[in-house]
Amino acid sequence: MIEAVMLWNEPNNKSHWDPETDPDWVRFGAMAKRAGEAIRAVNPGLTRVLGGISPIDPSFIRRMERQGVLDAVDAVAVHGFPLDWNLWQVHEWPQKIEEIRAVTDLPVWVSEVGISTFGAEEVQLWGLERTAELLVGRAPRIHWYSLYDLPREWEATTRHREAEGSSYYRHFHMGLLRQDGTPKLALEAFARHAPALGLCQWFHFEDHRLDEAVAWMKRLGVTYLRTGLSWADSFRPGALAWFDRQMAALSDFDVTVTFCFTPEHRGIVPHHTSPPQVPEEFAAFCADMVRRYAPGRVSAG
């Protein structure tokens, strides 16, 4: 069921890691390295992926190499949203992947790529077709973000809001399905490219969309999926019951599970982007989740 685990999400983006508390990513590097080693100790055969970077920055990968982080992972990943947030054109996707390949021999995944319907659904339709043309065959995993629009009453995991024009609001229009579950124009085009394209769909704690999402993914021909298990959520009452339900529902897919989000009471500062006070605690969470959902096989004899 679980084919890979991802260590954090967008570590070089301030929406997911606090650059003021850890300006040189030394704390992040130490945390990620410990987590990768802890996962390997539980299941040596499980693929470990460094959290997808956004922006796509070769210097960050070189920094991780100098810190020894790349010795504790089996692949790196990138995120790209050139029609919404990035300062490059969609046609540059092959070049962006090659920029990362130039600084590491590890496989390069595209663990998030997507296009919002903020301006028009036709933009997403065209962009999906062009993205598939550019990426299929160039990366071992391509996770389209996402299946559902983010419900408008929820908060996007970001710090930007109106300070950057439409950037914050584009988060709410990334789905192939609208908030009410009705299809957008690009849904049928995505189905034509599955299973070469997978999905990235984050499920919030006790997410009411889980079962419906599974049905849609099977209907679309999706075989691989990226989602997350939140370290912060693990402290909620009933957390393990929710994690069990989520992972059981996704058992028919090849799942990449992302471990991220610092519990406020365990951060250096009380925020989900904070480096943890004790990096070994994040490593222990990762090991516990792998032990629960992807334990290593024990050799006979």
Rank of each mutant, 00 (worst) to 15 (best):
M1E: 03
E3G: 14
E3R: 12
A4L: 03
A4C: 05
V5P: 03
W8K: 07
N9Q: 09
P11W: 11
N13K: 01
K14N: 12
K14Q: 12
H16N: 12
D18H: 07
P19H: 11
E20S: 14
E20V: 15
D22W: 14
F28S: 05
F28E: 07
A32S: 14
K33V: 05
R34C: 01
G36Q: 00
I39S: 07
R40N: 03
A41R: 15
A41N: 06
A41Y: 07
V42S: 02
N43G: 06
T47S: 07
T47Y: 01
R48L: 11
V49I: 15
G51W: 09
G51I: 09
S54T: 04
I56G: 02
I56Y: 01
I56D: 03
P58Y: 09
I61K: 04
R62A: 10
R63Y: 06
Q67K: 04
Q67V: 02
G68F: 00
D71W: 01
V73Q: 11
A75S: 13
V76E: 13
V78Y: 01
F81N: 04
P82E: 02
D84P: 00
V90G: 04
E92R: 10
W93G: 09
W93F: 12
P94T: 06
K96A: 12
E98A: 15
I100L: 13
V103A: 08
D105R: 14
P107D: 08
V110E: 03
S111V: 05
G114Y: 09
S116N: 10
T117H: 10
L125T: 13
G127K: 04
G127I: 03
L128G: 07
T131A: 14
L134R: 01
L134Q: 05
L135G: 04
V136P: 01
R138W: 03
P140W: 02
I142D: 00
I142N: 00
H143D: 10
H143R: 06
Y145I: 01
S146I: 07
S146C: 14
E155C: 09
H160A: 11
E162R: 13
G165P: 10
H171L: 01
F172I: 11
H173M: 12
H173Q: 12
M174W: 04
R178Y: 11
Q179E: 15
T182E: 12
T182I: 07
P183R: 04
P183T: 05
L187N: 06
E188V: 11
A191C: 06
R192L: 10
A194V: 06
A194Q: 03
A196E: 05
G198N: 00
L199V: 15
H208R: 13
R209H: 08
L210Q: 08
L210H: 10
L210E: 10
R219D: 12
L220I: 06
V222N: 00
T223Y: 00
T227R: 02
L229Q: 07
A232N: 14
A232C: 08
D233Y: 11
R236Q: 13
F243L: 03
Q246Y: 02
A249I: 09
L250R: 05
S251E: 13
S251K: 10
D252R: 04
V255S: 00
V257W: 01
V257K: 00
T258V: 14
F259P: 08
T262Y: 09
H265V: 13
H265K: 11
R266P: 04
I268K: 08
P270H: 03
P270W: 09
H271P: 01
H271M: 05
H272S: 03
H272N: 06
E280H: 02
A284S: 14
A284F: 05
F285G: 08
D288N: 13
R291T: 06
V298I: 15
A300Y: 02
